[in-house]
Write a protein that binds this DNA or RNA. Structure first.
Length: 143
DNA sequence: GATGAGCGT
């Protein structure tokens, strides 16, 4: 568990909690909830044409830097594209410039919707911690 | 031969 993984996990847990009920010490968190500001080398690519495959997606982004991984979400049954995918860059800066340059731009006639990818959760359902009113209870979510 | 926001077989 890296520090950032821990923080992102924490963000996903507290994002469902009304902000006014949370201590002021974590009011900075919403900036991580906005996909546009989340620092990552992996991009979520939405708005893909059904006919875009992983090879053409990689070709469309490889001019911005070394592409470490490309995935397209396919329907389990039919095998058709679900219209979104992921592009992971070796360098975070390349991911940012690719996002800035390609977000809203067309690929095969469809405008791309690009944001930074959420961390894929490899466990079960996320458990939302129950917050109390005491300071000690609030600090429990940092463990 | 379909569909159009979303976060991955």
């Amino acid at each position: 568990m890296t520090m950032r993984n821990g923080i992102e996990l924490l963000v996903r847990r507290v994002s469902a909690i009304p902000q006014h009920s949370i201590s002021s010490s974590i009011h900075f968190l919403p900036q991580f909830c906005t996909s546009s500001a989340s620092p990552s080398s992996k991009l979520f690519i939405g708005g893909l044409s059904w006919s875009v495959d992983e090879q053409s997606l990689k070709d469309a982004f490889s001019s911005f830097g070394e592409v470490a991984e490309v995935r397209i979400a396919y329907d389990k049954g039919s095998g058709r594209s679900r219209g979104f995918g992921f592009v992971d860059f070796a360098e975070e800066g390349d991911a940012l410039s690719a996002k800035d340059a390609m977000d809203g731009k067309g690929l095969l006639g469809r405008p791309l919707r690009i944001s930074f990818a959420l961390e894929r959760v490899r466990g079960g359902p996320v458990v939302v911690p129950r917050l109390g009113k005491s300071k000690r209870d609030r600090e429990r979510i940092f463990k």
